[in-house]
Computed example of a mutant assay.
Amino acid sequence: MNQLPPPVRRAQTRQDQPAAGTAAGFRPATKDGRKARVSLQGVSGSGKTWTGLSIAWGLAEGNRFGVIDTENGASSLYVGERGIQFDTLQMDRYDPRLLIEALESAAKAGYPVIAVDSLSHFWKGTDGTLDQVEKAASRFGGNSFAGWKEGTPLQNDMVEAILTYPGHVVATMRSQTEWVLQENARGRREPVMVGMRAEQRKGIEYEFDIAVEMNIENRLRVLKSRCPALHQQVLERPDGVRDLAKPILDWLRSNPAQ
């Protein structure tokens, strides 16, 4: 397994000398060394765990990757499927600082890809950000402003650790759900479960390079993509390796002539 350097919480930059003719402090833009950040959100049963694992396997290109599992070992049910091999770290407390520590350990172990299944627990699970805010607020007489003053930096540090991990990161998130009445093929109205926004801080999906949502029929819709090949794609029963990991790797490795 290739060893990766430990994460450093700062923006990815290059230290090359400026090319001739560029202004002081500016350098030629390049994707060299960039790693993908992919989020998948969906309702229970939409296939986000399997799809996330297959994307991670494709990005790992045959190397074992790591999975930070908050779903009672659900990811392990897929080990060996289509040759996928990975190591897991089981978690039952979801303090954002614990995720930071897990990412640091994964970097030291040299995992080229880390999958987090799921990131939602670190928002609303036991000791997650919302728990931290409530505990802090209770120390100040229920003052929610004081609670968020402590909780927000924890959340921000966690996101920064994800963004600066020295390998690829694939994170799943649960979606808030509701039932709506829709007309079926027989013309009858029936309740249908639909996904809402991710169960995480509002807008967190836009911290990622590629953000997708999946519905109960295993249809994937790209919400946001910096990878042009995936822009506004809708995929039925997607193959994570072929349909997502490959175009992502092709994009990251393509650099126009300087």
Rank of each mutant, 00 (worst) to 15 (best):
T152D: 03
T129F: 05
K31W: 01
G47F: 00
D87K: 10
G47K: 05
P191M: 14
G45A: 06
L119I: 15
A136G: 08
F65K: 07
L244C: 10
Q85T: 05
L53D: 03
V192L: 04
A245D: 04
E183G: 04
E213M: 06
P247R: 03
M1G: 13
M173V: 12
Q15G: 10
D250V: 00
Y78G: 06
E217D: 14
T70R: 04
S225M: 03
G187T: 07
F122T: 13
F26G: 01
A161L: 09
R186F: 13
E183V: 13
G187S: 11
L249F: 01
R237W: 02
E205C: 13
Q176H: 07
G58Q: 00
E150I: 13
G45C: 08
E134V: 08
G80T: 12
E160M: 15
V234Q: 11
Q3R: 10
Q233N: 00
F26L: 04
T126E: 07
R34H: 09
E217K: 03
A106K: 01
G25I: 01
L89A: 03
G203S: 07
G141T: 12
S175E: 10
W179G: 07
D16T: 13
A245K: 00
P247C: 02
A102G: 11
A56Y: 06
Q15S: 13
